[in-house]
């Protein structure tokens, strides 16, 4: 078997371990401490923010405009509406400011 194939197999096992690992650790405890539960409730906002913040910081005016409009739309509309609004602003703004 080629090295590439071994890399792919090892990478897929490593990735599956991260996807099931947190559950395997947590499920060993019968009782979840309130503080741990508070931490788990914070997971979505905590992780997803790290996928936006550095990207936003190193972007330009077109991207910022798109994020602001998308953020505003998300206060009222659903996920699809905010996504389409953000994408539309981004494509338009890039025609002008590059």
């Amino acid at each position: 078997m080629s090295t590439t194939l071994w890399i792919i197999i090892a990478a897929s096992i490593a990735t599956y371990l991260t996807r099931i690992g947190g559950h395997l650790v947590i499920s060993r405890f019968d009782h979840i401490h309130p503080r741990v539960e508070a931490g788990l409730n914070a997971v979505p906002a905590a992780v997803l923010t790290t996928l936006v913040a550095p990207a936003a910081l190193s972007a330009g005016p077109a991207e910022w405009a798109a994020l602001i409009v998308a953020g505003l739309v998300s206060l009222r509309g659903g996920l699809m509406a905010m996504f389409l609004a953000g994408a539309a602003v981004l494509i338009l703004a890039r025609q002008f400011v590059g």
């Binding site: 979505p44 906002a45 997803l48 923010t49 996928l51 936006v52 990207a55 936003a56 972007a59 991207e63 798109a66 994020l67 998308a70 953020g71 998300s74 206060l75 996920l79 905010m82 996504f83 953000g86 994408a87 981004l90 494509i91 890039r94």
Partner: peptide, 16 residues
């Protein structure tokens, strides 16, 4: 604009 679509989508998830 497709290089920046994912950050926009992730922002929507953060907001939700």
């Amino acid at each position: 604009g497709i290089d920046f679509l994912l950050p926009i989508y992730f922002l929507g998830l953060v907001m939700s």
